[in-house]
C-alpha cells in the first residue's frame, strides 16, 4: 500500500535538488513509476501545443491529460495501485511545486 504522505513528501524533496526543473520533473516521474507503477510525461504548454519536456519518452498513449499550471501539463496512465484520492494528492503536490517554480 502506497503511503500518500510519504510519496508527496518525497516529491517535494526531489524539488529541492539543485537541478534544472525538467530534471526534477523527470526524477519525480521516475519515483512515481518505481513506487506506484504510474507512467506519464510532462509537457510545456504553448497555446495549443503541448511539448514533451520530461518523463516516459516511450509512452505513446496516456489517456489522461491534466493542466497543472499555466505553463505545464501532464499526460498519465493510472493503474490499480493508485486510487483516485492518491492520484489527486499527487497531482496537487506537483501542481503546488510547479506554481512555486514556474518562473525559474
Amino acid at each position: 500500500m502506497v503511503n500518500v504522505t510519504s510519496i508527496c513528501d518525497r516529491l517535494r524533496q526531489i524539488n529541492t535538488a539543485n537541478e534544472p526543473l525538467t530534471q526534477r520533473l523527470s526524477a519525480m516521474l521516475e519515483l512515481l513509476q518505481r513506487e506506484t507503477g504510474l507512467r506519464g510525461y510532462f509537457c510545456q504548454i504553448w497555446g495549443k501545443r503541448w511539448s514533451y519536456v520530461a518523463g516516459d519518452i516511450t509512452l505513446a498513449f496516456a489517456p489522461v491529460r491534466r493542466q497543472l499550471s499555466p505553463r505545464y501539463g501532464i499526460f498519465y496512465e493510472q493503474n490499480s495501485n493508485i486510487d483516485d484520492k492518491l492520484m489527486e494528492e499527487i497531482l496537487q503536490t506537483i501542481k503546488q511545486i510547479l506554481m512555486e517554480t514556474e518562473n525559474e
Binding site: 501545443r49 511539448s51 514533451y52
Partner: peptide, 25 residues
C-alpha cells in the same frame, strides 16, 4: 493534429516514428 497537442513532439515523436509506433496513432 493530435501529436503536438499530446506531447508527441521533438525527441519523443522522433523515437515513436523510428519505432513505428506513431503510425498506429
Amino acid at each position: 493534429t493530435a501529436g503536438y497537442r499530446c506531447g508527441r513532439t521533438g525527441d519523443k515523436i522522433m523515437g515513436l516514428l523510428k519505432g513505428c509506433v506513431e503510425g498506429k496513432f
